[in-house]
Design a protein around this nucleic acid. Structure first.
Lengths: 156, 156
DNA sequence: TTGAATCTTGATAAAAAAGTCAAGATTAAA
DNA sequence: TTTAATCTTGACTTTTTTATCAAGATTCAA
């Protein structure tokens, strides 16, 4: 279970653009490239995905650039992550993990599928009310939303 | 954010072997291959990972095969998923997503990192007490552990 | 002791994801 | 009108993950 590079970089670009929303400044691909340390080509590719997902608007030309298509508190992180990386579990998952068979051998009764759904629910519960606005504050503010001690990292 | 094929297939193989634990029967690679619809070569590779992770024991020779190395209620799913697919977030994650730079541009203050940690915590809370034993029952039994209605699938 | 069935391992091939590139379209300012 | 700065798109290359293969080692039973 991993986050994709596209989710990581996409979210970072969106946050970066979001920080300039209230001063009504648009950001260009070269600017974002420098800020985030991602190549211009890659930034362009990622922003295209976000634009087609409806989160960004772009303007061409000499004074062009990217802006949010809605205020940060109207952009739901769960939607952004879906566009950037798909869902953890959906009904097509079993169909793409059938091994050599046409249909999964566990179709009618599958503990693994149930586990994936349960994990998906847990993740959804975290994300359901989270907006881009919540990610524009400090790290501590975000942790406090979820009652997590900033220093605690259960991976250690 | 996706599950890897290795996590899916590995867990299915482990469950399959676990179902035979109480009758003390070992399963061979060809048997598991047929049951799960995964090629023998792939089963062999996946079982090697599970064996090296300490969850399985193998016996060679004409009457060989694989058995659990501990009772199902002693095998923690969180450990199994770690061996099969790593962790969602760990401290090396930022180091591998630095773009073109040597270190991530957001080292000191990073909302994305915080979000990943929060999601990781949510997943850990689901998994922390779950054992292989819980996956050997029916799907409904598993759902009831987490108060999820079997029909409900938030991905729809 | 021989042979069949099994697991073991490292190398290879195929598929998917990530990242790069080049040519083009659009816009605003000089 | 010209020029420079910008976004846009599809194709390509590289890297990572997944799956396959072939040769070998081990064990049991006849």
């Amino acid at each position: 279970m991993k986050f994709s590079a596209q989710e990581e970089y996409g979210l970072r670009c969106l946050i970066r653009i979001g920080k300039y929303f209230k001063v009504e400044k648009s950001l260009t691909i070269p600017e974002i490239s420098v800020y985030e340390g991602i190549s211009q080509h890659n930034v362009g590719k990622i922003l295209r995905i976000l634009r087609m997902g409806g989160f960004l608007e772009s303007e061409r030309g000499q004074s062009g650039g990217y802006t949010l298509s809605a205020p940060p508190d109207k952009i739901k992180i769960i939607d952004v992550l879906f566009v950037l990386g798909g869902r953890l579990y959906d009904d097509s998952f079993c169909q793409s993990h059938t091994g050599m068979n046409d249909i999964c051998t566990n179709t009618t009764e599958c503990s693994v599928r149930s586990l994936w759904k349960i994990i998906q629910d847990a993740v959804d519960n975290v994300l359901v009310n989270l907006t881009l606005q919540d990610l524009l504050g400090t790290e501590d503010n975000l942790f406090s939303l979820f009652d997590v001690a900033p220093g605690s990292n259960s991976s250690n």
